[in-house]
Amino acid sequence: MTIKNLDNRGLVRVKAAVFLTALLPFAKLAVAAYADELGANPIEKMTHVTGFWALSFLLITLTITPLRRLSGCLWLMRLRRMLGVFAFFYAALHFATYLVLDQFFDWPAIAKDILKRPYITIGFSAFVVLIPLALTSNDAIIRRLGGKRWRALHRLTYPCAIAGVVHFGWLVKKDLTRPIMFALVLALLLGMRVAYRLAGNRTAHQKAV
């Protein structure tokens, strides 16, 4: 067994390790909340932490394909779905924090936020689009949809990631360092896909000629 050709037992171990690692930010947050160590404004802290990890896992999910192409490790694709579901997990926590802790079900205020505040409009839209992606992330549904339609649907991950970065950039008061870092990583990941596609088209074209 090499790193390129992981056997099933190896894959199960890698998956378990990734699963536990992906839960760490949640565990850390839960422990800090329980110990009352989230600082003076715990709700703000929880909103920031869950939002940060939702966006991070979206970008991590998007690194799998380029990483597979660069490394030749096909098994990396077997991690992608789990990472995507973790992105949804943190996004759902982020939304729940807003709904329950921040607004406490103040529906008029929430409706006003979603309609009037562009950063909330775009963040909420991205979350809504993530829901069907999370719901179609199991084998039975993938089989029923067929690979082609499933892949077409899951390309919505790209606009979600863009919306997530814009949402972050739009809400900070002044210091854009972190949103810009996310934007650069996302631009690189999307740029690589464009490059692959262009290179692929060229090969196809050469073959045709």
């Binding site: 404004n41 709700i43 703000e44 950063y119 739009w170 809400l171």
Partner: peptide
């Protein structure tokens, strides 16, 4: 312009 000032925590 980007958030409400009607309430505060």
């Amino acid at each position: 312009p980007r958030w409400s000032q009607a309430k505060e925590r």
